[in-house]
Design a protein around this nucleic acid. Sequence first.
DNA 1: AGTGGCATTGAAAGCACTTACATTCATCAG
DNA 2: CTGATGAATGTAAGTGCTTTCAATGCCACT
Lengths: 373, 373
Amino acid sequence: MIKKKKRAVTIKDIAREAGVSISTVSFAFNGTAPVAQETKDRIFEVINRLNYRPNSAARGLVTRKTNNICLFTPHPTSDFFSFSGNGVFSDLMQGIGEVLDQKDYNLLISWDTVGHKAKTPKLIRLIREQAMDGVLICLPSQDSSIINELNEHNFPLVIIGGADKNTAVNTVDVDNHEISYRVTRHLLELGHKRIAFISPGQLEFLVCEDRLEGYKEAMSDAGLKLRDDYIYIGDETESSGYRAVETFLSLKEPPTAIVAGRDIQAVGVLEYTKEHNIAVPETLALVSFENSQHAEKHGITSITTNLYEIGKEGAKLLIKLLNRKKERAAQNMVIPSGLVVRTSSKPSVSEPPAPSDSTEEEVTRVRTRGRKT
Amino acid sequence: MIKKKKRAVTIKDIAREAGVSISTVSFAFNGTAPVAQETKDRIFEVINRLNYRPNSAARGLVTRKTNNICLFTPHPTSDFFSFSGNGVFSDLMQGIGEVLDQKDYNLLISWDTVGHKAKTPKLIRLIREQAMDGVLICLPSQDSSIINELNEHNFPLVIIGGADKNTAVNTVDVDNHEISYRVTRHLLELGHKRIAFISPGQLEFLVCEDRLEGYKEAMSDAGLKLRDDYIYIGDETESSGYRAVETFLSLKEPPTAIVAGRDIQAVGVLEYTKEHNIAVPETLALVSFENSQHAEKHGITSITTNLYEIGKEGAKLLIKLLNRKKERAAQNMVIPSGLVVRTSSKPSVSEPPAPSDSTEEEVTRVRTRGRKT
DNA sequence: AGTGGCATTGAAAGCACTTACATTCATCAG
DNA sequence: CTGATGAATGTAAGTGCTTTCAATGCCACT
């Protein structure tokens, strides 16, 4: 095989080979102008024969599009990535990837660089370099300075999983406040009064704050007063659930039910109750979030947070944004959640009965809100 | 705020504002030619004031570099992503991301598109479009047609986790064959003769094949004959481990020890033994791979497979490749593994003793092999 | 035959950079 | 004093594409 500085095939090559001008090739390839069927056939024959694909840099230079979309996440070892124990990140990514793929967008991953606070955030750098068309930010913390900056510059942006409700920005998420209200309400309806809450993580994450608030509101609405000692700030580990029950049950007035912020914590709770022979749900009822395999395996009542769906809708929304000429109001998209009642909150019969609240029947509710622009 | 079709600031703007030519700006910014300190200062003042960053498409067009590196993986819901239960993908990605970040490369993620066999693989498309400089392929299956194609075109490529030893291609991985030999050997040294093996997944994954082969070789070397009924093809689930023991123990001559292909399977094994009151390690000894949190938590003897390190080295190697002018022989980099002996393969004393075989002490061995080119 | 209209196609101007090469100007050896 | 040297800077070509606008040819219709 003869080695030459083998340049990739360009539009020029196609034009020459097909005996037409380069603009005609461009028109034919992109379908941006009418080209006689005969010439079109000839051109495509050459394109396929030579495996031509337009150089993305050259094309991007003139069209000002990169077809890259950046997924900006917290640090991969952080809380978030182990959210739900396993597979959550995969679910999200798969949802995103699926729609991006279909629309021929590329997925760029970026996260806050460790210990480089001094440097311009990588995300900002990428934007200045015009290296991507839009960004999906997932699980932002309360420090929304970056988000605000992007938003002001009017950069296409969708936030996934926990958006500050006070910012006029496009979001896709489950309504953590509402579902937390719902699971707490479920326990209340079973007659529980002393209900404790385990936060899924640090409260600076909006998911966590929202879930806590939903719990609080449900309690207040039920006329129950909130107790600080019924709130435990957990993390992404099983053992944080374990330690939480341990703490709760050592109280003078221990709770009779627990809302765990995530399934893996609920697993930790069950580990404790099993070790200490505490009857679930008779002595201690338990509900949780995510409805993951863990919940299914351990019979934990849990409410779904469909990350796959969230990713998918987030990507769709972002792409819609990119194709929009004129400004529009920011959209807050809510992915429906279904409560799946299992033995952890119900006298065990045999098999978990049908969900009281099916995911399938609900419909995505979309709320819009004004934007200053 | 006045809305204008706000073009990003270009090198031209900087040149005008600083009163120099654009080439001087380019020289100063990139340090590619000497520029008087005074002018350099003036230029950088303007650059910082206007937040200039060179347009990546324009720059890429002439330099033929994108600074994008693609991580090509199996489908995100596949076996691989849940490899090790949780966090493995994160570990790998973090390792990769860390070094890429430092060198100002961007991370592009791509995986085989579902059900689009007809379409040109996305990876090939990206390469033809010259949308990335190099690719990290992780956990390839035996179908190495894509790899061969890339390799023939001399496209910068590093394979992570399971490379076909017969292809002259750059790889970074633990030596699955060797570590499998080692864990099996460990059981043999404890006096076991009837040792069964659970494959971590379908044998088309090279990791799986390698681990199986290592087991087989250790058995053969010990003068023991291989039995088909001592081999079970598992998957990424706990229950595959459960089913595996169940199968093994129903044999006329059940094994006295098991090599589980991954920690999560070992967990499934322990679940079974616990339920059926089978003494571990007395009646059934157990070893596994990965040395994940699962292994630690359940006291499973396991051998490390440091994905973080693998990712890091893989990225480093790829970047080295990109900066190399002349061709060099392909490198096969082996990340060391350490066997951590715990109670699952040792009469339980109290706490797991010090590892018999510490990771720290080993040194990365690098093998090279000729390449045809 | 002349003319207008339409469908195709081509020529050329960017897009924002890098870089080979030319130019300038001061300095210094002869 | 002159020409050579070399550092600093500028000029312009080229990167592969899109897109505007002009040119061409063909046909029907007058």
